[in-house]
Design a protein around this nucleic acid. Structure first.
Lengths: 150, 150
DNA sequence: ATAATTCTTCAAGTACACTTGAGGGCAAGA
DNA sequence: TCTTGCCCTCAAGTGTACTTGAAGAATTAT
């Protein structure tokens, strides 16, 4: 049987996060430490994994609200098991694959679009269609359009 | 011979950016429109491409300061030509390739690290080493470490 | 037991990337 | 010409993601 009580300092040291950041994540509902009798936070070991995930997702540009949603299906702090994490990993993996594919397309377009100097609207309307329209609901986003005349 | 004068409204319509955003980019030194006699901004057609590039780079998570640096080698607003853009595109393409590779590694690690449930520190120390150490200068970032005990 | 360290809350501050609003000037169509 | 619409600046506000600081309580080390 293992100890299940890490202080915020322990967790900070093991994740590299500032304690203030961890408190902030709690206030935003991304972690749910329990409190000891004196009201101090105590973290389960699994919370380190949770925080690590937050760190990764953050780095990939996901806002905390999205990360909270991704983490939501995991049992509240105590006892998410292997299959919980595996399920969640599969979901997130798909999101990541999308991102990678999107970035790849963007990279290709950079070659074919800025690189060659043609910069046709049609080509870049694709970028527009899939990358921005979904995000901002509407509003035309004609990107990289600029007929070269120099 | 083509007209070389677009108002901020024209540019906003063609890029999908808000005029306030474009003014902000100017104040941050990312675009350099000239002014007419009355002090109104006038943009060259090539500025649309410039702004489109800003939009893309932004979406990829680059801060405006980085984008300014990337754009810096381009001639100031008037007359960056095909080879200017091509050079710049090659540079940015390399940055993008790095990002893609990084994300790919992360995705693989998600499989092998969260996915399987083993979550070994050694595996994730890799993530740590290449993705965070570089960024934050120092400070240990032990990520995803959490021996499963449930 | 005492002292040092770590923890607590809460309010305010910071950085980035803008948006909004006030007050006023310029431009193009009827 | 007039009036509608777009443009200007500047200050202040917004949202996200935190950090910093003050005042004090709990924990740990000696």
């Amino acid at each position: 049987m293992k100890r299940h009580d890490l202080t915020i300092g322990d967790v900070a040291e093991r994740t590299g996060l500032a304690t203030s950041a961890i408190r902030h994540y709690e206030s935003e509902g991304l972690v749910h430490p329990y409190r000891n009798d004196a009201g101090q936070r105590r973290f389960a070991r699994t919370d380190i994994r949770r925080l690590s995930f937050i760190l990764i997702a953050q780095q990939l540009g996901f806002p905390l609200s999205d990360i909270r949603d991704q983490l939501a299906p995991l049992p509240q702090s105590r006892g998410p098991n292997k299959s919980d994490w595996a399920r969640m990993s599969r979901r997130f993996g798909r999101v990541l694959d999308e991102r990678i594919a999107q970035m790849q397309r963007l990279r290709d377009r950079l070659d074919g679009c800025i690189g060659c100097g043609c910069l046709s609207l049609e080509t870049c309307a694709l970028y527009n269609a899939e990358d921005r329209a979904a995000k901002r609901g509407a509003g035309p986003r004609f990107v990289i359009d600029d007929t070269v005349d120099d």
